[in-house]
């Protein structure tokens, strides 16, 4: 006796419902109801009060031919599994370079001796920021990581971020430019970006685990790139759309082609915004690389995971501190580079 029996009876669909009725496994609720003994007739007030929403499960009780919500999730899984193989044939070769890049970067970062790596990184900081203070801070932070034997983990994390952030910029800036040029493109892209940004990070990993083997670096590489590419796309689009209309008009009045306009006017004037996007992208890669340790990404995230799994408080805290240090280093260096770009349009470069 289900709440919606009357619908199917009324429509004369009873026969269709029960055609191949093979009652599914009995649920606990059914069992309890049976145990409670004979069903006392409920008053219409009671049955109205308990009337469920006509959901899949409620309808299924009245008519077994209708699928249950459990079948829906199973169907989703099954259809994903059905397209998996053809999808793999396409995606595997395309994404293979990502695996190579990550493997090589990991190898280079971890096998280069610390006394070469440290000066190189400090040189990079100097080139990006031209600030002795910042260089001193980065030097101190890296020395600390070396001192507490977290250096290798930190370098693994760093190398993954380098590769992923680079690829984000490589793909994100052109996508942003395309969005800024066409309103249709913008309308189509924004929902995708919104989805990438709001989808819980763990949810990304689930289909990726089905698609690729967990031992392949590209699995976490793709997850990080999908998550971190959003800000650089958004800010490139925004930056180009915000370029002074007067200057664009001048560019057109002097007969610039679309390409000249892009290279000579739009990108240079949008550069502060694009750099802000790059900063955000790098910070988001760092956030994701920690979560990606769930799917075998090496680095500090592995230590955090160990801390959680084995309840090793100290290990987790030290790794957390290392991540904070890396975050500060990356943020300050990219912000300093951004400040230099901003200053370039207000202070002469010689």
């Amino acid at each position: 006796m289900a709440a919606y029996d009357f619908v199917f009876d009324g429509l004369g669909l009873r026969e269709w419902c029960d055609r191949d009725a093979s009652p599914g496994p009995m649920s606990m609720a059914d069992l309890l109801a049976r145990g409670a003994g004979g069903q006392a007739e409920k008053s219409w007030m009671e049955s109205l009060w308990e009337l469920p929403f006509p959901s899949l499960d409620a309808l299924n009780q009245a008519c077994p031919a209708i699928a249950r919500s459990r079948d829906l999730t199973r169907g989703l899984e099954q259809s994903f599994l059905n397209v998996r193989d053809p999808l793999r044939v396409v995606l595997d070769p395309i994404t293979q370079p990502l695996s190579w890049a990550l493997e090589n970067a990991l190898h280079v970062f971890t096998s280069t001796p610390w006394w070469i790596m440290l000066p190189l990184l400090l040189l990079l900081v100097w080139v990006a920021s031209r600030s002795w203070t910042l260089m001193g801070f980065v030097g101190g932070a890296l020395a600390f990581l070396l001192f507490v034997d977290h250096y290798t983990f930190a370098m693994q994390t760093m190398s993954i971020i380098f590769v992923c952030a680079f690829l984000c910029v490589l793909f994100g800036v052109p996508i942003g430019i395309a969005m800024s040029r066409s309103n249709t493109m913008q309308r189509l892209t924004i929902p995708v970006l919104d989805m990438l940004q709001t989808l819980p990070t763990f949810v990304y990993l689930i289909p990726l685990i089905f698609l690729f083997s967990v031992t392949e670096p590209k699995l976490y590489g793709i997850a990080i790139i999908l998550y971190a590419i959003v800000p650089v796309i958004r800010l490139t689009d925004l930056g180009i759309r915000l370029v002074d209309k007067d200057v664009i008009e001048a560019a057109e009045a002097f007969g610039m082609t679309r390409h000249q306009k892009l290279v000579r006017v739009q990108i240079p004037l949008a550069l502060p915004n694009i750099m802000a996007g790059v900063n955000q992208t790098i910070m988001m890669s760092l956030a994701m690389v920690v979560i990606a340790s769930l799917v075998s990404a090496p680095g500090l995230g592995v230590l955090v995971l160990r801390g959680i799994r084995n309840l090793e408080l100290g290990v987790g805290l030290m790794a957390g501190l290392g991540i904070v240090l890396l975050a500060i280093i990356l943020d300050r260096v990219t912000k300093a580079a951004l400040a230099r770009v901003n200053a370039a349009s207000s202070v002469p470069r010689h």
Partner: peptide, 13 residues
């Protein structure tokens, strides 16, 4: 043709 603008419209960089 050449054009001169009210708000100059020079390239700041």
């Amino acid at each position: 043709m050449s054009m001169v603008f009210q708000h100059f419209a020079l390239l700041p960089h």
